[in-house]
Design a protein around this nucleic acid. Structure first.
Ligand SMILES: [Zn+2]
Ligand SMILES: [Zn+2]
Ligand SMILES: [Zn+2]
Ligand SMILES: [Zn+2]
Lengths: 154, 154
DNA sequence: CAGGATTTGCAACGGAGTTGCAGATTTTTT
DNA sequence: AAAAAATCTGCAACTCCGTTGCAAATCCTG
């Protein structure tokens, strides 16, 4: 029950001076495997599904699921040490992703299809930063959201 | 009980083929006077304060307040005809503003100060549109959010 | 392995948003 | 102007994600 990815997660947590708990290890792994930002309930769902069966239980056993409060607080701690970002809210729910998807002052743009609802990370595109410093604003982070039709729905 | 602004609101509603109800007239006026996007409860609050007597009641009567469901559905109808936009969500609440603050494919960028929480409309700044059309995406709307310190807090 | 620090789960709460429906308001027709 | 049709409004009740308090479980250090 030790994989390269799992070891990597432990290492990351140790470097961040966080307790290496099962919840944090599992959630980190889920986010490392995710192709797009995930809601808390999606994260919980994936943890339950992908977890290599505790004590011989079937992987789909719901007992592998994390409590939603644990997911909530785990994400808070990961955000605190800048390992994770809140990417955006969609339908009143935050979507989370690893912070290493982002540059220091700008997260990758996110495109949400208004037809199928799927969100795509545009990791290879960055807009120039808005020039507002001469007005006295100090920008720490710029976020771009796009809305429209995805290739599949166009 | 007829002002130029009120007449303008009625005219806009008529052009949009919407019923000229007191709620719509009042909310439109509030948004016309707003310097930044407002939450539904802030809109209700301002309607209650500034209203020149809804339904013949005294202007100071707190009963001038609109029910939150009415605010909600009024905004929905105004969005439906593209008079109003949902600008962004902050702390789980949508913030609304007149759509004429925006160009066809891009709303004005919004800057939120992480220290004092105040949001500023950067109406004189527009970022270039992300070029994603060659990937098959059709962009209807681009939104930019900025976070950092405002001039007062810097 | 013991002891203190931290995290987890449960239950209960909070608040913006949402819906059904009866009665009120606005518009259209007569 | 009155009646009829269309639409809107308010109330109450509900959903859902996020949030908090607290006791039990887990994790780290010595
Ligand atoms: Zn699509
Ligand atoms: Zn992303
Ligand atoms: Zn400020
Ligand atoms: Zn604005």
């Amino acid at each position: 029950m030790t994989t390269p990815q799992r070891d990597k997660a432990r290492r990351i947590l140790k470097d961040a001076k966080l307790y290496c708990t099962e919840a944090r290890i599992a959630i980190l792994q889920v986010l490392m495997q995710a192709a797009r930002p995930l809601r808390q309930d999606q994260i919980a769902e994936r943890v339950a599904g992908f977890q290599p069966a505790i004590r011989g239980r079937n992987a789909l056993d719901t007992k592998n699921a994390l409590n939603k409060v644990t997911v909530y607080r785990t994400l808070e701690s990961l955000i605190e040490v800048s390992l994770v970002h809140r990417a955006f809210t969609y339908q009143r729910a935050w979507h989370f992703e690893l912070a290493d998807h982002c540059t220091e002052h700008q997260c990758n743009p996110h495109f949400t299809c208004t037809n199928c609802g799927v969100t795509h990370c545009l990791t290879d595109i960055l807009l120039p930063m808005a020039k507002v410093s001469q007005k006295g604003f100090i920008v720490n982070r710029q976020q771009v959201r796009l809305e429209g039709l995805c290739p599949a729905c166009a």
